[in-house]
């Protein structure tokens, strides 16, 4: 199982040959994403304002990574992620996905993890936070899992034991439609605790 190492200022990443797909219905937020990745030296990016346009781009092929907003009218970023993992043809199905969200209740972060997103990032989008996730994706050796209840990067995490008074927490237990948020937002470190793979003794 993969472990994630801390990114150091002296580490190098070469992103100029990577094709990014940026998805956000908010034009300003989309521009923020674009500015950040262009600052990383990315030359090839496609910006779209929703999941439908994102699907078209993905079907055309050649996308290497998806950064998508979570909350979008109509089909949101979670539905898009689910489509990529379960419906999109290979190799698009395996594309790394980073969900960017202004709202981080645990139910949303857990849903993102359980539908196969690689990482979730809380807005406002901070360059160092995003670059660290790109670094992790570049260096991780997580296998891809395809099962009836889950498609996505291996998500075996720290074993904390099942929550008290619950019967299970497989993705099959979650409803596809979350409805309105009813829990407090998680901090980025709390999100990472849910999302990051780590070496565990099973």
């Amino acid at each position: 199982m993969a472990t994630l190492r801390r990114m150091l200022d002296g580490d190098k990443l070469k992103l100029d040959g990577i094709n990014f797909l940026l998805v956000d219905d908010n034009p300003h937020a989309l521009q923020i994403m674009a500015q950040v990745v262009s600052g990383f030296g990315v030359r090839n990016m496609t910006k779209v304002d929703g999941a439908a346009a994102a699907r078209q781009e993905l079907l055309r092929g050649g996308i290497d990574i998806v950064l998508t907003d979570a909350q979008m009218p109509g089909e949101n970023g979670y539905k898009l992620t689910e489509w990529i993992r379960r419906v999109a043809p290979e190799p698009t199905r395996y594309v790394p996905i980073v969900i960017v969200t202004g709202h981080t209740p645990e139910s949303d972060v857990t849903l993102g993890r359980d539908i196969g997103a690689n990482f979730t990032i809380a807005k406002p989008l901070l360059p160092r936070v995003l670059l660290q996730r790109l670094f992790w994706i570049s260096y991780e050796d997580r296998q891809f899992v395809q099962a009836e209840g889950y498609v996505g990067p291996d998500r075996r995490f720290k074993r904390l034991g099942p929550p008290a008074d619950t019967e299970g927490r497989r993705c099959d237990d979650l409803k596809g439609d979350l409805g309105a948020a009813s829990q407090p937002n998680l901090s980025q470190s709390e999100i990472d605790a849910l999302m990051k793979p780590a070496k565990v003794a099973l």
């Binding site: 990114m7 150091l8 200022d9 580490d11 990443l13 190799p91 395809q146």
Partner: peptide, 22 residues
């Protein structure tokens, strides 16, 4: 459940020679 190694262009290209420091 099927476990497999999948192509990761980010891993192939991002870790190549050159690039900019973090």
């Amino acid at each position: 459940a099927i476990f497999r190694r999948v192509p990761n262009k980010l891993a192939q290209l991002a870790r190549g020679r050159g690039g900019i420091a973090v």
